[in-house]
Nucleic acid binder design. Structure first.
Length: 403
DNA sequence: GTCAATTCACATGAAAGAGACCACGGTCTAGTG
DNA sequence: CTAGACCGTGGTCTCTTTCATGTGAATTGACGA
């Protein structure tokens, strides 16, 4: 047993890797120069430049689909500005905060606490009143006499969960500060969320607006080529591979992150199969694997109640070919809870859970009206048959196991 | 046949509760000098 | 006298329940042609 394992490792080491530097294809990597974003970089730089002269720049709102380089570009500019301000001793700070990260900055308290922490203050994760944290933050900011640019990535998530008063409060802070100013740079991939915003908040948030258009297939190709050159050994990537990756990603609103992931996973698959090169067919496999891993990961990390709901949907769909409705799911769910010793939730909650499963893309739930026979959600499964079997198995195991 | 009213089966919203986690300040207790 | 243990109070946060209101079209039934 150990012998074969040793053998395997040795073989692995002997083999030459396809990768020169895999990290260059990973999401965390920040390239030296950003392709096809010169206009946006220039625009943002112009808008933020006054802060280097210790004036307050306009608030800025950046919008663009996922994988269009919003975050990358702003971080790039922020780094440049920080470098400059460090060498020239300009009192400027730029905080980058991702509002989507759960348990980091997705509520008002946590956002302000995070800001105070960036200034080196110890703030407990809970226990203090929000006002108090505000005061701590304000005091330190005021004492440092600094201009602050606050980059709020995925700001739509924050506002969705915590309401728009936060932005209002943050902008209002400026009138209370004598020595410092706060500028908000909001990043979002969902433009429609501004529609339900308080008009005052909306206008103050988007004093300036920049849109990041999706990359087209040609642009994606040049991005991929540049990265592939850095990350793979020469001659590894076969003709047509890059083109296919970009075509796939361009089809999905020009998501560069996805294109890079596709290429990386294709590389990993090729390596595991002990191939010398990456073939076009590896990309199809990569696409499937990414999708599969994503769903399995989602399903496994869901709470029991979600799993029970999903399992109910599976079971009913097994008997009934076509679509099913909320009421049926709830009935089945209740008996299932009895079976596995779970405390059943109310229908109200299950309705929400079905909505969330829809958001996750595991099911398709469309609200339809049956006229006289009421209004309900029409539920369909959004998984390939192969994946369906796999996920069913996972659910079965998870539901029957204790805790 | 037409048209408005009715009706169903939930969807959707708002508010409030439960329970976990935590900080802070006050009080009690045991150990120390 | 003092450090540490141990409350009680008040705070946030997530998940959930409770109560209330909304909704789209099939059905119904009155009405007139």
């Amino acid at each position: 047993m150990t012998k074969t394992l040793n053998n395997l490792f040795e073989k692995f080491l002997e083999r030459k890797s396809l990768f020169k530097d895999k990290s260059r294809l990973q999401a965390a990597y920040h390239p030296q120069n950003i392709l096809h974003r010169n206009d946006q970089i220039e625009l943002i730089a112009k808008i933020l430049a006054p802060s280097l002269r210790e004036e307050k720049p306009s608030n800025l709102f950046i919008y663009g689909k996922t994988g269009t380089g919003k975050t990358l570009t702003t971080q790039y500019i922020a780094n440049q500005m920080m470098e400059l301000s460090n060498t020239k001793k300009i009192p400027l700070k730029i905080f980058y905060i991702n509002c989507k990260l759960r348990r980091v900055a997705d509520t008002e308290y946590r956002l302000i606490a995070q800001l105070a922490r960036e200034f080196g203050k110890e703030i407990p994760p809970t226990g203090l009143p929000t006002d108090e944290v505000y005061n701590i933050f304000l005091k330190t900011l005021e004492s440092k006499k600094q201009n602050l640019i606050l980059v709020l990535d995925e700001i739509d998530q924050l506002i969705h969960k915590a309401g728009d008063e936060i932005i209002y409060n943050l902008t209002r802070i400026n009138s209370e500060l004598k020595n410092s100013k706060i500028t908000i740079l909001g990043i979002s991939n969902d433009l429609s969320f501004t529609n339900n915003l308080d008009p005052r908040v909306k206008s103050s948030l988007s004093e300036e607006e920049i849109v990041f258009p999706p990359y087209n297939a040609i642009q994606l190709q040049s991005i991929l080529k540049a990265r592939a050159k850095e990350s793979f050994n020469q001659g590894v990537v076969q003709q047509g591979v890059i083109e296919k990756c970009s075509a796939y990603a361009a089809r999905e609103h020009g998501d560069a992150r996805r294109a890079l992931e596709l290429l990386r996973v294709a590389g990993e698959i090729a390596e595991r199969n002990q191939q010398e090169t990456i073939n076009i067919t590896d990309i199809d496999e990569a696409e499937e694997k990414i999708e599969r891993d994503r769903f399995i990961d989602i399903v496994m990390t869901q709470p029991k109640q979600f799993q029970a709901t999903l399992y109910s949907i599976f079971e009913i769909l097994k008997k009934k070919k076509d679509s099913i409705f909320t009421g049926e799911v709830y009935d089945y769910y209740k008996t299932l809870c009895d079976h596995v010793g779970l405390r059943p939730l109310t229908q109200r909650r299950i309705s929400d859970i079905i909505g969330e499963l829809d958001m996750l893309g595991i099911i398709n739930a469309k609200v339809i009206s049956h006229g006289r026979f009421g209004r309900t959600r029409e539920i369909k499964l959004a998984l390939s048959p192969n994946l369906k079997i796999k996920i069913r198995k996972i659910l079965e195991e998870d539901l029957l196991s204790p805790n």
